[in-house]
């Protein structure tokens, strides 16, 4: 299995390097979102005497610069891709291989991440020059962050696979996707750091997978999490990966039965 992961990831790196300029422009386009959040929150912080909910402009800069990497790590095979995959017969080809397509997706997008990280470094440097971050992580925080971004990647892979598999039953499910993405935006730490959410929203988010894909990895590096909170966060990520994997297996079996019944 290691050989499959290694070869698939290497293939993804080769393919994505062919598209390095497209990837770069995509990443440049993507940083518009955190820059808007950063400018808005920094302005509010300045207006409120230098900080909002414990976040200074430097802390916001650190949060949203790390955000750009975490966002890129969170790019996985989307439900829209699933529609395309079924429509163009790609799923049939995948079903004929003696390996679960989930392995292929995890390996392929993992390979893509290495290209993304490489391209991200100069962008992060530029952002740090424009918006000086306050960032003093400990070694433990760095190690937990490095694990947590891959944990986030796996959680999001599982849940977007679940959403994507809805296309086994119906062809147009974009409204459902949009609902999921809206919940994720609000309850993950993507739009606003979790610490700035109302208490009820933080409590609700604790029982959902979203914050473990955005807020937790970012705060692991830039926040003030205790070692206990860091390890608890990794444990929660593991839990959500396992929950997601179990659900993926269940829905996959039913979905493939349905696919085999109605035609590939």
């Amino acid at each position: 299995m290691f050989d499959l992961y290694w070869t698939t990831a290497r293939t993804a790196v080769m393919v994505q390097l062919q598209y390095r300029m497209a990837n770069y422009f995509y990443m440049i386009g993507m940083i518009a979102e955190p820059i808007i959040y950063l400018v808005v929150w920094s302005t509010i912080a300045a207006a409120q005497g230098g900080e909002v909910g414990g976040y200074t402009p430097g802390a916001f800069a650190a949060y949203y610069i790390v955000w750009t990497l975490v966002r890129n790590m969170n790019i996985v095979f989307t439900p829209y891709g699933w529609e395309w995959r079924i429509k163009h017969g790609e799923l049939s080809a995948a079903l004929l291989r003696p390996v679960h397509p989930l392995h292929f997706d995890i390996a392929y997008f993992a390979g893509w991440k290495f290209v993304v990280i490489l391209l991200w470094l100069p962008l992060a440097g530029l952002l740090a020059l424009l918006f000086p971050p306050t960032l003093h992580p400990t070694w433990l925080e760095v190690v937990v962050f490095c694990v947590a971004i891959w944990g986030a990647y796996l959680i999001r892979t599982m849940f977007l696979w679940l959403l994507g598999m809805v296309t086994f039953w119906t062809t147009r499910v974009s409204a459902l996707y949009e609902l999921y993405f809206a919940c994720e935006l609000l309850l993950s730490g993507r739009l606003v750091p979790m610490a700035l959410l109302p208490a009820w929203a933080r409590e609700l988010a604790w029982f959902l997978p979203f914050q473990w894909t955005f807020g937790f990895p970012i705060e692991a590096l830039v926040g003030q999490l205790t070692p206990h909170e860091l390890l608890l966060g990794l444990a929660m990520q593991l839990l959500w990966i396992l929950v997601g994997l179990g659900l993926v297996q269940l829905v996959w079996r039913a979905g493939v039965r349905r696919y085999g019944a109605v035609g590939g």
Binding site: T7, T11, M14, V15, R97, V99
Partner: peptide, 14 residues
């Protein structure tokens, strides 16, 4: 986007 040789390598792993 890749030469067929790279796709063959992927088939080998699969």
């Amino acid at each position: 986007d890749l030469p067929a040789l790279d796709s063959f390598e992927l088939q080998r792993a699969i």
